[in-house]
Amino acid sequence: MKTCPEQSPDDTKLEQDLQQSAMLKLARHFHSLATGASQVPLQSLHSHLRSTITDPRVFDYHDRLIEGAGPLFSHFLASVPYILEELSRVGVALTRLAQTRAKEGAQTFSLFEVDAFDGTNGRALAGHSKGLIRSFTSSPNRANRAAFERYADPLLSQFYPQSLLKVCPALLQSPEYRGFSQGFEFIYEMAAFQFYTRDRERQIAHIKQFLKPTGLAFFLEKLNHPDPQEYLRRELIKDEVFKTRYFSEEEIRWKRQQMLEQMQNGQVTLEELVSALSTHFKYVHLLWSSSNFCELVASNDLDQIERFLSLLGPVVQPVDFCFESARLGRLATDNRDAGESGNA
């Protein structure tokens, strides 16, 4: 398997972060989830909000996610309130954006899924776009590879069974992954950074090197909150209102006690994340919020981010889960922009 040599002090620091990370400390637990040996959802993951979805393309994307999900991704969908509906909304918008750009002369597009389980979302995007967007997924949990290979079209999607911190330019120049050697139009961090450290600036810099100048980078993260009681309140609505659909109270309690302490060690606040993103990107938008999770998109190309936003359908989610509704929209902007920094 192609790996990357250490090339700089930053690479050495990233390797140290990996060796000390919760990603490795929790490896046995992730293996159990990825093989379906523990915490399997008790019922079907199909959205109970289907009646509120009017776009048939969102239905198609939703169904692709469900049908192609391996055990760990199914667990993820059952653990993050309404991320199923949100990934479908974003995936349809990315397909529309790629189709629009294809009419202008572009040929194909690519997505880097950062530590994204078994690549379910990337595979869904590749299929939904009919191959217009190809996907590359990293995952340090090698058990995810079985589900990937079971469902993937190898002409459209590829899997790298290593941490995002092991992805480097030399890897993408190797024969196996050369199709991505020019970089990616889209990058999606799938709640991965929190399992390493709080050093978002270094983590963002690492993946940004693979993003094309006009590209869009998405960041789905579980965030800390300055007020511990508010953090707990948001956790409780997630656990008691949503997750009880899919897990027993005992399973929910066990995960809270045994796993989330490790995860929280790497979480940052929304303000810290936006600050780190703003050192690398001119434009940052908050797209979605659910319990303690937020999804942001960032870019250095104003036209590209605005085109994407114009193609994005409505959020499909009960309002009671969106705790950052007042902040949805633009959180950071280039100083040269005509508008002021703040909410859109």
Results as ranks from 00 to 15, higher is better:
G179N: 01
F242R: 07
G183I: 11
A116L: 03
R64A: 10
Q194A: 15
S278C: 01
V274N: 03
D239K: 12
Y151D: 06
P318R: 11
A147P: 00
I133T: 01
S8Y: 08
A191L: 11
P56D: 10
A102R: 14
A98K: 00
M190A: 12
E324N: 14
R198E: 15
P175A: 02
H225Y: 04
F193R: 06
Q16S: 08
I53W: 09
F30I: 00
A147M: 06
Y82P: 13
E149T: 06
P213A: 05
D320I: 12
P140C: 12
D227L: 04
H225C: 08
S163I: 10
S291A: 15
L312P: 00
L223H: 03
D55K: 00
T3E: 12
H31T: 15
E149V: 08
D153L: 00
A124I: 09
E85G: 09
H31F: 08
L260E: 15
E113M: 11
L111S: 02
K166R: 10
S21F: 11
P228Y: 11
R57P: 04
L171I: 07
N300A: 07
F218G: 05
R198S: 08
Q182R: 14
G127S: 01
T12I: 10
G266M: 02
Y82A: 08
Y283M: 06
F159M: 06
R101V: 06
F136I: 01
A146H: 12
T35S: 10
T137Y: 04
F281D: 04
L223E: 02
L49T: 14
I66G: 00
V297F: 00
D118M: 04
M23D: 10
S47D: 08
D301Q: 10
R330Y: 01
F30M: 02
D11G: 07
S32P: 04
D63W: 03
